[in-house]
Design a protein around this nucleic acid. Sequence first.
DNA 1: GGTGGAAATTTGTCTGACAACCTGACAAAT
DNA 2: ATTTGTCAGGTTGTCAGACAAATTTCCACC
Lengths: 239, 239
Amino acid sequence: MPTPFSSASELPRAGLGATLAARLAAAIRAGEFQPGARLPTEMQLVERFAVSRAVVREAIARLKTDGFVESRQGSGAFVAAKPGLANFRIDGRLQATDLAHVFELRGVIEVGMAELAAQRRSKADIKALDAAFMQMQGALEAGTDGAEADDAFHAAIATAAHNPYLAQFAAFLAQHFSATRAVTWQAEARASGSTLAAQAEHLDMVKAILQGDAEAAGFAARRHVTNAAARYLAAQKKG
Amino acid sequence: MPTPFSSASELPRAGLGATLAARLAAAIRAGEFQPGARLPTEMQLVERFAVSRAVVREAIARLKTDGFVESRQGSGAFVAAKPGLANFRIDGRLQATDLAHVFELRGVIEVGMAELAAQRRSKADIKALDAAFMQMQGALEAGTDGAEADDAFHAAIATAAHNPYLAQFAAFLAQHFSATRAVTWQAEARASGSTLAAQAEHLDMVKAILQGDAEAAGFAARRHVTNAAARYLAAQKKG
DNA sequence: GGTGGAAATTTGTCTGACAACCTGACAAAT
DNA sequence: ATTTGTCAGGTTGTCAGACAAATTTCCACC
């Protein structure tokens, strides 16, 4: 039996198809190919990028999945009229200003989820929320990494909001932060006692959701995300 | 010169690759292939679905773009550990309960955007917002379809919020409604005077954003989206 | 000038082949 | 007994050629 992802430290290298898809997408975003315009034919792309037609077709297939491109047999491949709307994607590498914007987007989602959670939480939701909070408290006192507990806490709120789409999108956003949440930041945060502040903010959120106070839950969530963003950016500036 | 999208009424039919990708994605979501598990080999998929290896490879390339699958040369293709998080997608056909959830998600976004717009609107933003509102008013009095004006209005708010990610996601969500926003609904709404109510709600939003009152803007946006959802669902129930 | 149809163009699919890489097993050396 | 080297088989990545299907272009014809 083959072991999946045996060398987890190294991601699979991008193939020619993925690389070409990225290059073409960049060209589209840069305006080289206007929306509605026709892309070069597959043979022209073959010559231009010195790859086989199979690679070109893989790249175009990826762009079609993204909604960037639509192709018509016998006619050609065209840049979609409304690129970037067929699905929603956030690039892996974000600049500082973009990061602030994504934090803001996450804040909007978290506030909305907290308000809904306060209105809809069931007994099971409260139990799960309490367990996640206690687990974070334990990690805080033990001095261990509380990242998983933090994720579980926010996931519990998402569950309590009882909206799968909201929860899915929140998880989607959270992934981008957990991916970049370096160990150094964790250590830095522990040393400076900022996780202590975060835990206090968590407590406010738990209280409000438990009491069913939507307004207070939203307010606490907004403050928590704002402060978390500030802590994150400050730590990244140092490192 | 070829005319792009000459027959706009008919979408390009889905090819075998896209179809197979959808079937595999459905199988993954259904749990037939667990996260981290290895997919059947390309040759096995060739036999199982009675297509060529080129089609199988296109399907897997699409799944890799979606983040559902990661493949390693010499080893195989594996279901990603966290499927569905690499990008965010909403299926085209939604049931009524799901539709309510998506409306709720849109409401959260619209409220957040309205609050930010009230805090950050520039003079140019106010001008654009006012123009969109007046255009809607004109369409209302003329009895014409105000769909484009409505889209422009919400787009103006998104611009005023000065957050491209928020705006992009709002546009992403709006597309799902504009796609299903049938002409019949428009006629129905006009006849029952519900667009009149919507315009009154729009006015509240404009006022609040113009005055820079974030709380009032959020409140007005929440009421508008809630009412709009109710109107939409009621009209769809009739038709 | 308008029309019909043949020809050229372009994407979609199939097939075969080889390269690059991984896995597991076995033998050899330490 | 453990480690290392080697090999065979399997799997994905890429290339090349061919034909099918659909569209566009163009030209003879009326």
